[in-house]
């Protein structure tokens, strides 16, 4: 029983830390937005993805269909993903040219990501811009499959473990690909 209480307590504490980290990130994100507005007014550029610190809030991710509204943090380490969806370092920021990769745990922030299908809407908001995306691809691949690709256009890739609602290791990954809503669908499905 002592072991059980210790295990449950440790896991519960980790969940609580994640919740606190997301709350803290949201407050910090709002402060950064205000700061960015001042910077733009002084005609400074937006921060580059390379200079972001791990764990720092980089964007806001909103998916109306699954009632997701979370702050995306920089990095995809276990500690970062415990606090919120993680932006893969080195990938483009959501809305910038290139492939912006955002990943999250299937038991927390992306627990309903499997409900998304082609045509659904995703909204991202960075310090520089707000982008409305449309899901154009949904695939389940082996966990070792090379799915992260360099893109010439603006692409948003959302990843999580698959199957969702499965305990233990994750043999597969759910990959959702989205393009800006104003992009032609035929051009997006290259």
């Amino acid at each position: 029983m002592v072991v059980g209480v210790a295990l449950a307590g440790w896991a519960g504490a980790a969940y609580a830390r994640g919740w606190l980290a997301q709350s803290h990130a949201r407050a910090e994100w709002e402060a950064r937005l205000a700061h960015a507005a001042v910077q733009r007014a002084r005609s400074y550029g937006s921060p580059a993805s390379e200079s972001l610190v791990e764990g720092a809030p980089v964007a806001r991710l909103v998916v109306p269909k699954i009632a997701l509204d979370d702050i995306v943090l920089e990095g995809v380490t276990g500690e970062v993903l415990n606090g919120g969806p993680g932006h893969l370092p080195g990938s483009a920021l959501p809305g910038d040219t290139g492939n912006a990769v955002v990943s999250a745990h299937r038991d927390r922030h992306f627990r309903r990501l499997g409900e998304l299908s082609i045509g659904d809407t995703v909204v991202t908001e960075t310090e520089a811009r707000r982008t409305r995306w449309r899901v154009v691809g949904r695939t389940v691949v082996h966990k070792d499959a090379p799915v992260i690709r360099r893109e010439t256009g603006r692409v948003l890739t959302l990843t999580t473990c698959w199957p969702i609602g499965y305990l233990g290791g994750a043999p597969e990954r759910l990959i959702l690909k989205a393009v800006p809503a104003d992009t032609q669908l035929a051009a997006a499905q290259d």
């Binding site: 990095g75 995809v76 380490t77 276990g78 993903l81 415990n82 993680g86 893969l88 370092p89 080195g90 990938s91 492939n99 990769v101 990943s103 999250a104 745990h105 299937r106 038991d107 927390r108 992306f110 691949v141 966990k143 070792d144 499959a145 090379p146 799915v147 992260i148 690709r149 360099r150 990843t159 999580t160 473990c161 290791g169 994750a170 990954r173 990959i175």
Partner: peptide, 14 residues
């Protein structure tokens, strides 16, 4: 843990 063309998806198993 870092973007690379042809990399696999980040490990999101918890």
């Amino acid at each position: 843990t870092r973007f690379q063309d042809g990399a696999r998806a980040p490990n999101t198993a918890s």
